[in-house]
């Protein structure tokens, strides 16, 4: 399974060699935090920044995980996949390498965001809670990067991937507890939001950011862990059967 690491290194090195890429992926989340977090005239809370920080963390990881499917699409379109599948390494190691890279990239972006949030005055109770925030984000990233890589493997061109991506990502984000608490939602949206994995991650992280004695979101983290695990199983199955 060392191949997972080698595939990861390949993508990571390619990413770090493109400075524009890195710069853009770090600026966008910070812009959200500053332009939306600091300015939005919300009526349901007097500390909108504290409310929106978990949402933007999750949103950043969500979008970057979904975006990650293009890696698979391009590997397929440009002929890399054919070469990789003819290698003796287990085929799922290609998928796991992608997931590892996409998740790592997401967590790096999240780190920048956390630093900006810290500067703006957002605080977390203890280091332990911070670790749990990372764990939640990681499980969430695994779930969605596995999904996006699987979609990437199934599709044949990046145009269709881009449309699937935009079709999935916006509704997922807006039909969640990202922008408003459940109490102020219309009933139909509340039902949708409760089932949305994005809300799972956001609610968990919001609990971890609470001041005083924050509750540990055992249910949320376990739920995400189970979901990520199931996604990995399906992905492994799909990649083992991969015939190009």
């Amino acid at each position: 399974m060392k191949a997972v690491l080698y595939y990861f290194q390949r993508d990571f090195r390619k990413w770090t060699r493109s400075r524009v890429n890195i710069f853009a992926s770090l600026v966008r989340p910070a812009a959200w935090l500053i332009f939306v977090g600091l300015t939005f005239p919300a009526k349901f809370t007097d500390n909108y920044l504290a409310f929106i920080t978990p949402s933007i963390l999750v949103m950043t990881v969500l979008f970057s995980s979904l975006q990650g499917g293009t890696l698979m699409v391009f590997d397929k379109m440009l002929g890399f996949l054919n070469k990789f599948l003819a290698l003796p390494a287990r085929r799922e190691s290609l998928l796991l390498g992608k997931i590892l890279f996409i998740s790592t990239r997401g967590l790096i972006q999240a780190t920048v965001l956390l630093l900006v949030a810290g500067v703006l005055g957002v605080r977390i109770e203890s280091l332990f809670h911070l670790v749990l925030v990372y764990l939640t984000l990681f499980l969430f990233a695994v779930f969605f990067s596995a999904l996006s890589s699987m979609i990437g493997l199934a599709l044949n061109d990046h145009d269709s991937y881009a449309s699937v991506n935009s079709m999935v990502s916006m509704p997922l984000f807006f039909a969640s507890s990202a922008l408003m608490p459940y109490e102020v939602m219309p009933a139909w949206l509340r039902t949708l939001a409760r089932f949305n994995p994005v809300s799972y991650a956001i609610d968990s992280i919001r609990l971890l950011f609470e001041v005083g004695t924050p509750t540990i979101p055992v249910q949320g983290i376990l739920g995400l862990a189970v979901a990520a695990f199931i996604m990995l199983l399906i992905g492994t199955y799909q990649f083992r059967r991969a015939t190009v």
Partner: peptide, 10 residues
């Protein structure tokens, strides 16, 4: 394979 698949940034 037919199409050249090399990582140009490596």
């Amino acid at each position: 394979p037919q199409d050249m698949a090399l990582d140009r940034k490596l």
